[in-house]
Structure formats: structure tokens, C-alpha cells
Design a protein around this nucleic acid. Structure first.
Lengths: 193, 193
DNA sequence: ACAACTTGTTCACTTAAGTTAAGAAATGAA
DNA sequence: TTCATTTCTTAACTTAAGTGAACAAGTTGT
């Protein structure tokens, strides 16, 4: 199970056995049931997550309405903004599926950094890459129509469309469930004719 | 002029005189005229920018149409995705105003890192913060209507509305210039009635 | 097996954004 | 200053998404 974590890290730096042990000595592997809420709105937290298996989702509650803004699946890491800003969380995180993940905080990170400083270099590279990727995603979102965004998701993360309820996908794509339903109908219609 | 740079850095770490000199010895300050194109689509580049004074903008050319996706003003840093991915750039960067900025690349960064390792820590923290901020921006964009997005920009970055042409703002807000014009008319109408 | 709840689809209707085109206003260059 | 270009606004029309409601299908718990 921890192999997934080391596979991930090996994309950035090569770990020695000692370094692997340094990580294992602090990392907490956790198994959470579908529907479990990991973080609530208004809650303060220092925890970052790394998904080994399953899917977690971030969503806001705007006047009683759920607005889903992110999905994190295998090999994806999430440090909620509230951890960075040190303010209460503005959103919820919950598990879309039964999920296995690691939970860590900055103290643990420092502990690992102390044992091998290359870890910090890796974290820097990782967050630079995530930032670049996030900006490209945002750019694509801004420059395309709801229909194009759905088609784009279909291409980039087809798994999500299978494993996540439509109403969550809809707000993730910036539209209402009814619109998504219509778009899907329109597309299958096109493919027929 | 370089005070702006040191003011910025001082938000993250306190610099000694030696460290300031280490930065000045590699950093390139550059003055660019309004309209200058810093990066072209298809071009490969290793340069990161930090705006000291002025405004630069990122935009795509999609079938001859300009799609603006970002503005970077005083105290804002931009490392184009092509620098991270090491592939040709998918977008253009140009100057909205006469601009003073620093241009640096990863070699220079390493040079500074070698002289004081705390610089790397700062870069890590910075990009983690930028990532958190970018995600919140994206979330806000996804969960709001074009009109709300305009109002949000009016609140968060009122300067942009003054210093940037409307048609660039429009695509930055994910809409057509005509729509932005209508939205503005609708809002001033509301404020009257 | 049944009721209760969740999820997805459909429909009729409303609202807002996209499109096309024309003209006004601002900007810049000669 | 004048002319040309760029930028912004307006209007009529088209298209697509939002809204509210009803219903069907699927799931969960008892």
C-alpha cells in the first residue's frame, strides 16, 4: 500500500532505504469510509492529504447548496487553503468512495526535512508543478463553454465521470445538474446522427 | 526600485546584507515598453518574471481570437507553465503598461540557493501560498455567475478595471466584451434605481 | 418486499450570454 | 489638428444555460 506513496515520490527524487524509513516513521496511513467528512466548514486544521486509493472531494455550502470544486484521486495531494492561511476552512472535504490516504502536517514535514533535506526540494518542485497545472486548468476552464468543459473532462479524467455522482460533476464543471444532463443528451444525440 | 523586491521577500524571510547582495549579483532588472511581447506561443523559455512596476498579461490565440487568462501587477510573480513542463509555450505574455520587472531562470535560482539555502524554503512557501490562492480563485470562478465574477473583481482588484482594456478583462472573466459591457450597464442601472 | 431517500432525466418557461453588425468614443500617429 | 485605428457601447436576434416541477430509476434500511 505504501508502495503507491513511494512510486509517487520516486517521480521526483530517488529514495534510499533510510529515507523511506524516515517517512514511514512519521506518516500516518488512514482508511476512511465513503461519505466520511474529513474537514468541515469553519473548522481549523493543519492536515494535508495524499490519496493512495479512492477519491475525496472538496465542496462549499452556499445557502444550503453544495458546490463541488475539486476531486482528488490516486496519487493526488491536497493541502487545504485553510492550512496555508491559518484561518477556519471555507469548505468541506468528504470521501466519494472508501479511501486510503496519508494525513500529515507541517510538523511531520519538518521532521522529515530534518532527516533528509532533499524532501524540501521535492516539495518545492511538486508545488511549483501543481501551480502550473492548476493555472492551465483554470485557463482551459475560462476559455471554454460548458459543453467543451465536459468534453475536456471526458478526455482528461474519464474515470471521474464513472465514479462520481452527476450533480457533483455538474458544479465541478460550473453548471447545474439539469444542464449537464442536457449536454450529455446532446452529445450522445450527435454521435448517433 | 529593488526595494520593491526586498519588501516582497521580507514578507517571507528577513534578509541579511550579504543575502541581498547575493540576489542583486544575479537578478536582472529589466524595463519594458507597453505592448512588448515577452513570450510568444510556440517559443521555449526558462524565464520567470517578477513585476516591480506595471502590468503584464498572459493570453492565448485561439483561432485568431485573443483569450486573456491572467494579469500580473506589482509584487506578483509568474513562472510560465512552459518553464515547468519544458515544452513550447501555449500562450503569449505581453506588457499592458510600461513595466519594470526582474527576469530570472532556474540556474540563477540555484546560484542564489547555493549562497543561502533559506531562499529555497522561501520559494517553497511562496509557491504553496500561490497554489492555495489560485485554487480559491478558481473555486470562486466556478461557483459564480459572470455578473458575480465582475463584482468580485471590482472588490478584489479594482485597479485592474481601470488600467486594463475591457475586451481583455472580458475574456479574463470568461465572457465576451459585449456581455461585460451589458453587465456594467446593468450594474450602474441598479445603483441608480 | 416495501417505504424513504437519492440521483438522474425530461419538459416548459425564463433569463442571460453569444453573435452579428453598426456606430460612438477614445487613442495614437502623422 | 486631423485621420486612422482601437476600443467600447448599443441593439436585434439566436442560442444555451438557469429554474421549478414532475417523474423514473436506483439505492438503503427496516
Amino acid at each position: 500500500m505504501q508502495d503507491i506513496l513511494f512510486d509517487f515520490i520516486s517521480k521526483y527524487i530517488t529514495l534510499t532505504e533510510d529515507e523511506k524509513n524516515a517517512i514511514l516513521s512519521v506518516d500516518i496511513f488512514r482508511s476512511v469510509k465513503k461519505g466520511t467528512v474529513l474537514l468541515k466548514e469553519g473548522q481549523s486544521s493543519k492536515d494535508s492529504y495524499f490519496v493512495l486509493k479512492g477519491c475525496i472531494r472538496t465542496y462549499y455550502d452556499l445557502d444550503g447548496e453544495e458546490k463541488t470544486t475539486g476531486f482528488y484521486t490516486e496519487m493526488e495531494a491536497l493541502t487545504p487553503p485553510c492550512v496555508i492561511s491559518k484561518t477556519p476552512s471555507e469548505y468541506y472535504i468528504s470521501c466519494v468512495e472508501d479511501t486510503i490516504l496519508t494525513v500529515s502536517n507541517s510538523d511531520m514535514e519538518e521532521e522529515v526535512n530534518a532527516k533528509f533535506p532533499r524532501f524540501e526540494t521535492m516539495c518545492k518542485i511538486l508545488s511549483e508543478q501543481l501551480l502550473a497545472k492548476e493555472r492551465i486548468n483554470f485557463d482551459e476552464f475560462k476559455t471554454s463553454s460548458p459543453e467543451q468543459r465536459y468534453l475536456n473532462l471526458l478526455e482528461k479524467r474519464p474515470d471521474l465521470i464513472q465514479r462520481v455522482p452527476q450533480y457533483q460533476l455538474a458544479s465541478y464543471l460550473g453548471m447545474k445538474p439539469e444542464s449537464l444532463s442536457r449536454i450529455r443528451a446532446r452529445i450522445t444525440e450527435k454521435n448517433k446522427g
